[in-house]
Amino acid sequence: MSTTRFVQLLDLAAGLVLVTSFAALWLRRLVTVTWVIALQGVALAAVALVIGAYEHETELVLIALMVGVLRGVVLPGLILRAVRAGDEHREVESLINVPAALLAASGLTLVAYATTRDVVALSSTPQVRALPLGIAVMLIGMLLIVTRRKAVLQIMGVLMLDNGIALVMFLGTSGVPLAVELGIASDVLLAMFILQVLTTRIRTKFGGTDLDQLRELRD
């Protein structure tokens, strides 16, 4: 693979990760958002795959396949089940409207670029130049958690946050040992399970997972 092709593919994949996170803020149907998250997982796997292929590291390619299965299929599948199980409205309910959310996400992307300037200046490899994208996805994931009402969207936000972290990891360190990635993946899986169980329990107990209504539970 030539270097030009590598840079193009890497930028495409990493850009796709960012674009999907914007799309997750923009779209209104819960099921579609889940598909977008799955697409983001695949894009993340593609980033790892491209880096692995370019540097001829079979271990990274292996990790990329695993990430693709886990973040592109298994975790979105779990979320989809949660979405389908809920007989509540399948619409996204947000504290701020879509244009505001997109504007905030753009702001966060700028913050990510501004704060990582020094890191990017350290090295001129294409991976490091794409590093701010990872930070931006992390921040947008947190924005999703903060602004959405349904608990299932909080789960998606956590997943997006973790995708951002993984992206930074791939881009910044050009591959971590398999054991570390395995550990992180199983952690996320576990967190997903716990969150899903919790959501189901909240729903059966209080009849809905609107976080603003859970406010009554304090004191």
Binding site: L143, L211, R215
Partner: peptide, 22 residues
């Protein structure tokens, strides 16, 4: 008591830390 507000605090804190410690 609003969970969103608590989550927003952690987001703001994260951004502040990022900006300050840059």
């Amino acid at each position: 008591g609003s969970i969103h507000r608590y989550l927003a605090y952690s987001l703001i804190t994260l951004i502040t830390v990022l900006v300050v410690s840059r």
